[in-house]
Design a protein around this nucleic acid. Structure first.
Length: 881
RNA sequence: GCCGGUGUGGCGAAAUGGCAGACGCAACGGACUUAAAAUCCGUUUGGGCGAAAGCUCAGUGCGGGUUCGAGUCCCGCCACCGGCACCA
């Protein structure tokens, strides 16, 4: 028998579309904003958000509904609990795949995007998610991208005031050249250029020297690009992680990515060439290095500049000029991939020049090497080979001197008589210890030596305490067609903003979207569009697709607003709970401080979307456009769903599961429940079709609790369902189920919630008569998980209105109390027997009953009973030896 | 190398420091059926003893520790998965 004509366990194929229609027609999941008819200010708000999908041509896979089902259960549950629930969905529809598909087929990306969105939406609706579709957003709509551009203009029109540590309107800047401090600026900088994609990429989009999309090689190239000054917010982006209810792993990932490190900047004066007579006073430029170990300054035996460093041309001697130039060219040709892959073997070359170590006046050589990165710190280092692995390797290879200045033990550092001509150390020691061979620092433990040397350098004016971040400014322009055009025009070599009234600026119609290959964006081909006026032309770069996702959660609050990116009251209500009548005191969800109350999505966005969105949000917050400093209060990462072979799902492995097929065979409720029953939401877990079948069987059992087939083959309410009182045992199971399912939903422990509902169903299934009250309660707690089935049976049992609109049931703790308790009795921690006693039995009675057991006597024979531990309500343990 | 996470039956998993394996899958046995499917009932961690009900020992990646009692807490390892990786 083929699977397609297998008898359906219950008629889900009829009831599911029917209820989806009812919900749509009645607007069941529409939620009003403050001021709208039907808005109830007395209810607390709950904002539960999914990471909106990129509508790819492939459609949904079973990974999508995992997180979506979790949020849907939460949304439906919170609604039953009396919250105003905001649970929206939309489309992150700009981006490379649509454009590449367009290039291949010649079809406009807007066309394919619309098709894909329709396909995705149909698939999502078939799963029965309770989204408020009236709030649907699409990042490519003119009504949306208009505000993406408007936010860009806010960023462009702002600067970071170091005194207030806040973004402020550029008008408050009193310096010379505002363009130098804007949060959006143009820079000629080495960028990640991907020839295959014909665009530059952000650091975050480059993985192991290859593009995140497509895996094409990426090379470094200097280009004029738009940058966003995210580095100004580095410290706040780290600090303000603390108050967020996010997985620790993600917080760590993000703060490591930002990569704060404390150290010092130290200046080394270069020695002019030819070298002046000793004792001559001369002026020559200084090289600044960054180090986290200023305490090792006495062990610095050479300097290394990045090959790209601007001082290289200045210091290089005539004899070394050719060799240095060759080395620099070789480095420039290397892609990032080569540069890291060849990391095993250090390379470099001497510039012929020397510099002066500021603390001991020593003359040390200046080298260039590609292991020093141009983008980090000052692009130059002092090399301390005795205490840094990389410097050690380099010094060994090029026979440079190695001098130990930190000792693991204090003894070696004492005495002060240690001379700097001690033998070279046998190995590199990178840990902390005590300074030696370091003049005034000798004997000091590393942390104190650091502070001491920094104080001395500052006094001499040749160094200072510094904090460095790995985070780079965000490369924000792309040479692509399918993205938001910059609302910028160029005139006389300078950029300026479009007026907000000129927005939206939609991409020009174009037949040929292909990258030009030269780095010139495709928009350059739209010659009419480019011309803004006689003297001004439009910027032809577009924004990266992250732009739209940086603020979509705000647009959901007020998606139709034509006056503002989000209405003031709508934003305040959904982000803080404050209602217009009383804007000062927010009704806050006790579980959440601010912002989106629950955000569910994959880990892959830990350092991309989640960092960018926080950055934009902080700018908007500083400028007074949003109420909270952080967008997402609570974050949960759903785990990856693997194929049934335990491998990542992929077309090539042929292990991809299509949710449409699952729905066709077992129904949407079975798909939803199986996705939640597989295991903990955050765990990686393999798909199993027989597992789906098991869950479908459970749902069919619930169906048959209520329904049976008559002789005509019609489903009718079973006569076993009657208005009778449940007995004590059943009542206890039902109340325990209400308690556990509610608590488990709060903890996002959906798998155990479903287990409990199975237990409850199993308790009901063989009863005749079956108490209708117990069944109704079961349906209420099942409703968020299997909403179609619950609606249908609720209606069949003549329930009032929709089950989606019911109040969550309560349980009576008194019902859960049992009269008699069974105690396991252990002897020396091993289970030997059990006793049943009254729940109120005093401890002494429990102990006596346990000791009276023959099994206990047997196992304590020949031993002395030392102690009897009675844990009330739990167990008895007899300790004997 | 560094940082996270995870290790429990044949499989997915569950267990406020308190009866390890709930719930489900698969497997096996049975009922119903002309037969099958579906459904329902039962068995199912391993070893030893027993004709049997049962008894007993061992068991949560490995080695230690704390505790009356450890899957759970502490210390030290191992394996796998994910992230970062010349960041000075």
């Amino acid at each position: 028998m083929s699977t397609s004509d297998r008898r359906k366990p219950y008629p889900f194929d009829l009831i599911e579309p029917a209820w989806q229609r009812v919900w749509a027609e009645r607007g069941t999941f529409r939620v009003p904003n403050p001021g709208d008819p039907g808005f109830d200010a007395g209810r607390p708000k709950y904002y539960v958000l999914d990471m909106f999908p990129y509508p790819s041509g492939a459609g949904l896979h079973v990974g999508h509904p995992e997180g979506y089902t979790a949020t849907d259960i939460i949304g439906r549950y919170k609604t039953m609990r009396g919250f105003n629930v905001l649970h929206p969905m939309g489309w992150d529809a700009f981006g490379l795949p649509a454009e590449q598909y367009a290039i291949k087929t010649g079809q406009h990306p807007a066309v394919t995007t619309a098709q894909n969105v329709a396909h995705f939406k149909g698939q999502l609706q078939r799963i029965g998610f309770g989204y408020d579709w009236s709030r649907e957003v699409n990042t490519t709509d003119a009504g949306y991208l208009r505000w993406t551009q408007w936010i860009f203009l806010q960023i462009y029109g702002a600067w970071f005031n170091p005194d207030t540590q806040r973004a402020e309107p550029i008008a408050t800047y009193t310096g010379e050249e505002p363009d130098h401090v804007r949060l959006a600026y143009v820079a000629e900088a080495p960028v990640n250029w991907c020839p295959e994609l014909g665009t530059v990429l952000a650091n975050e989009e480059v993985i192991d020297g290859k593009s995140e999309v497509g895996g094409h090689p990426v090379e470094r190239r200097p280009m004029r690009q738009w940058m966003l000054r995210i580095t100004a917010f580095a410290q706040r982006l780290i600090d303000e992680l603390e108050g967020l209810d996010w997985p620790v792993g993600i917080k760590l990932l993000q703060s490591n990515w930002i990569g704060r490190s404390e150290g010092a900047e130290v200046g080394f004066q270069t020695i002019p060439n030819p070298e002046p007579e000793p004792g001559t006073h001369y002026r020559s430029p200084w090289i600044k290095v960054f180090t986290t170990r200023p305490d090792t300054l006495y062990g610095a035996t050479y300097l290394v500049l990045a090959p790209e460093h601007s001082m290289v041309d200045y210091v290089v001697t005539e004899e070394q000029a050719t060799a240095v130039e060759e080395y620099r060219e070789k480095t420039a040709r290397k892609s990032d991939l080569d540069r890291t892959e060849l990391a095993k073997e250090k390379s470099g070359i001497w510039t012929g020049a020397f510099a002066i170590n500021p603390v001991n006046g020593e003359r040390i050589p200046i080298w260039i090497a590609d292991y020093v990165l141009p983008g980090y710190g000052t692009g130059a280092i002092m090399a301390v080979p005795a205490h840094d692995e990389r410097d050690w390797e380099f010094a060994r290879k090029f026979a440079l001197p190695i001098r130990a200045v930190v000792s693991e033990t204090p003894a070696l550092g004492l005495g002060g008589g240690s001379s700097p001509c001690d033998a070279e150390p046998l190995e590199c020691f990178t840990g902390e210890g005590f300074a030696i061979h370091s003049g005034p620092l000798d004997g000091l433990p590393t942390p104190i030596a650091k502070a001491e040397i920094i104080a001395r350098l500052e006094a001499l004016g040749v160094g200072k305490k510094t904090i460095n971040y790995k985070l780079r400014d965000w490369l924000f322009s792309r040479q692509r067609y399918w993205g938001e055009p910059f609302p910028i025009v160029w005139e006389n070599g300078r950029h300026r903003a479009l007026d907000a009234s000129e927005l939206p600026l939609t991409p020009p119609p174009l037949d040929d979207f292909k990258p030009t290959g030269t780095g010139e964006p495709p928009l350059a081909k739209a010659t009419d569009w480019i011309r803004y006026s006689e003297t001004a032309t439009r910027e032809t770069n577009t924004m990266p697709h992250w732009a739209g996702s940086c603020w979509y959660y705000l647009r959901y609050c007020d998606p139709q607003n034509a006056e503002r990116f989000v209405g003031v009251e709508a934003e305040r209500y959904w982000m803080t709970g404050a209602v217009p009548e009383n804007p000062q005191s927010a009704i806050r969800n006790p579980q959440s401080q601010s912002g989106v109350d629950l955000y569910v999505g994959g880990t892959e966005h830990a350092v991309l979307h989640l960092l960018y969105a926080r950055f934009w949000h902080k700018v908007l917050h500083d400028l007074g456009h949003v109420s909270t400093p952080e967008p997402f209060q609570r974050l949960v990462n759903q785990g990856l769903i693997l194929g049934s072979d335990g491998q990542k799902m992929s077309k090539s492995r042929g292990n991809v599961v299509n949710p449409d097929d699952v729905i066709g065979e077992y129904g949407a409720d079975a798909l939803r429940c199986y996705e939640m029953f597989m295991g903990p939401l955050e765990a990686t877990k393999p798909w199993s079709m027989t597992g789906v079948e098991g869950v479908a069987r459970f749902l069919a059992r619930v169906w048959r609790l209520v329904m049976e087939e008559n002789q005509l083959g019609e489903w009718i309410v079973s006569p076993a369902v009657q208005k009778v009182e449940p007995d004590k045992a059943l009542l206890r199971v039902v109340h325990a189920t209400v308690k556990k399912v509610g608590e488990d939903i709060e903890e996002l422990s959906f798998n155990t919630a479903i287990s409990q509902m199975m237990v409850c169903t199993n308790a009901l299934v063989n009863l005749n008569p079956r108490p209708i009250s117990a069944i109704r309660t079961l349906l209420l707690v099942l409703a968020p998980f299997a909403p179609h089935l619950a609606e249908e049976l609720w209606a069949r049992l003549d329930g009032d209105g929709l089950i989606a609109g019911q109040t969550w049931p309560t349980y009576d703790p008194a019902v859960l109390v049992v009269d008699e308790v069974e105690y396991p009795v252990q002897v020396n921690g091993k289970l030997r027997d059990k006793i049943v006693v009254s729940k109120d039995a005093p401890t002494a009675d429990v102990e006596a009953a346990a000791l009276a057991l023959p099994k206990v006597a047997e196992h304590t024979a020949g031993k002395t009973i030392r102690k009897v531990i009675v844990v009330p309500g739990r167990l008895v343990n007899v300790v004997a030896n």
